[in-house]
Nucleic acid binder design. Structure first.
Lengths: 239, 239
DNA sequence: CCAAAAGTGTTTGACTTACACCCATGA
DNA sequence: TCATGGGTGTAAGTCAAACACTTTTGG
């Protein structure tokens, strides 16, 4: 306690540290049941504070890069991944986020496609975890992940985020599985299908997935421009 | 151009400056037609860059205050107002926001009630302007105001933001005028009324507004807890 | 043939929109 | 009494949930 107070009065002199972190979501097909679930990569802290706890990937903001570039860079450096979607989540700046120093974190969230996620390196200090059952993370990162999950669920219900989890061609059942994994509940296949077909940006191909145990499903393609989605005020297509 | 390049290479050494700004909205009943419109306070810049242009109120982040506290403080200092709603908007960190120095601004947006807004001081360097017809502001503040407007319109359609523009008791027509001012279009009084009455948080009082030229309208009260609204991940009621 | 997923059709109820209509007040 | 906004009723249209049903494959 005495040490804590000393820290507080000490650090009141220094300017707040500014860092960029990223919550990265990917879909992985769990071995247990065949359905995909949400996973995310975390890095193990090798220094105090919170040494040996898992934390979100991130780092300081370099002087010559934009916030979004910094998020993409830290993501690339820690996991080797390229995101298919990247959007600012929130700026966290509470006084007691770190016991050592006042820290302001501008947090982004990202989606990666399964082919990308498959070649993600998993090392001693980088691990993948199911998003819905994390244990204690460093700093306030549990809160941040929960908020990112909330935003992801909102976006998937509203917009066209789901395709950023998928490859260029997909069955409608795969899209439904994305929705079900993100929202955590089953959806009516018939109604879901109609709903998707009624949107303008889904185009059917002439290809079918062969080799399944049942009737071969048709493959579809997403034709909506990725840029037309609202990921912040800087995408000029905001009306 | 030569000077610009020198600045860029110079400032690449320094860490980015961190500032907090706030977009403050209030409803004012325009003298022209009786209907209220959206206004916001701006401060005149007295120094370079953008000297003599109007800008959003704000300032640096002190080491001992949270982001939201900093927003409330800068709001209080420049306009003397206390907001009825305050939420983080976005963190702006583009490389070319300021010609002088790399700057990261965490921007909040706020609503104030008309009684508060009425006693807002208007000085040589603090002025109020209609939100829909601003001329050139300092930095990227036009973009920021536009984005704040977009968020405000979204929130008003979805949530219970409108009551933060109003006093403790109000007529349903006043609520409708808030919606109309924010959304910029007329709404059917009959349907709007029904829609509001069907929400749980509107309670009728036994009072009526006397003295109008027509049938006296009933006064209502908003009973929804202000805390139950989602203004960010830190409101613990986020499910 | 059977099981199961792909895909289609139909019914139902909830909700929105438009608009006709009555009520209460000041002028 | 009339004009006007407050307030109620109602029919048409839209949309999503529920679910029965047909199609097509592997076993």
């Amino acid at each position: 306690m005495g040490i804590g107070s000393a820290n507080v009065s000490e650090r009141a002199q220094q300017p707040p540290e500014l860092a960029i972190s990223t919550v990265i979501f990917a879909l992985r097909t769990d071995a247990g049941h065949g359905r995909p679930t949400l996973w995310l990569p975390l890095v193990r802290r090798t220094r105090q504070p919170f040494r040996d706890l898992w934390a979100l990937p991130g780092g300081p903001l370099s002087a010559a890069e934009s916030l979004q570039d910094a998020a993409a860079r830290s993501l690339q450096e820690t996991t080797g991944l390229q995101p298919s979607y990247l959007e600012q989540l929130y700026a966290f700046g509470g006084l007691d986020r770190s016991p050592v120093q006042r820290m302001v974190s501008i947090v982004y969230w990202a989606l990666v496609r399964p082919d990308e996620a498959a070649l993600a390196r998993e090392t001693e200090n980088v691990g993948w975890f199911r998003a819905d059952c994390l244990d204690r993370l460093a700093f306030d990162h549990n809160l941040i992940v929960d908020y990112a999950l909330w935003r992801l669920r909102n976006k998937v219900e509203y917009g066209s985020i789901a395709y950023d989890f998928l490859g260029p061609k997909f069955t409608l059942a795969q899209v439904r599985e994305v929705y079900e994994a993100v929202l955590g509940r089953k959806l009516d296949p018939a109604n879901f299908r109609r709903q998707l077909r009624s949107t303008p940006d889904i185009e059917e191909t002439d290809e079918y997935v062969q080799g399944g145990r049942h009737r071969p499903p048709r493959l579809y393609r997403y034709t909506g421009a990725a840029a037309q989605r609202n990921n912040g005020p800087l995408s000029q297509t905001v009306e």
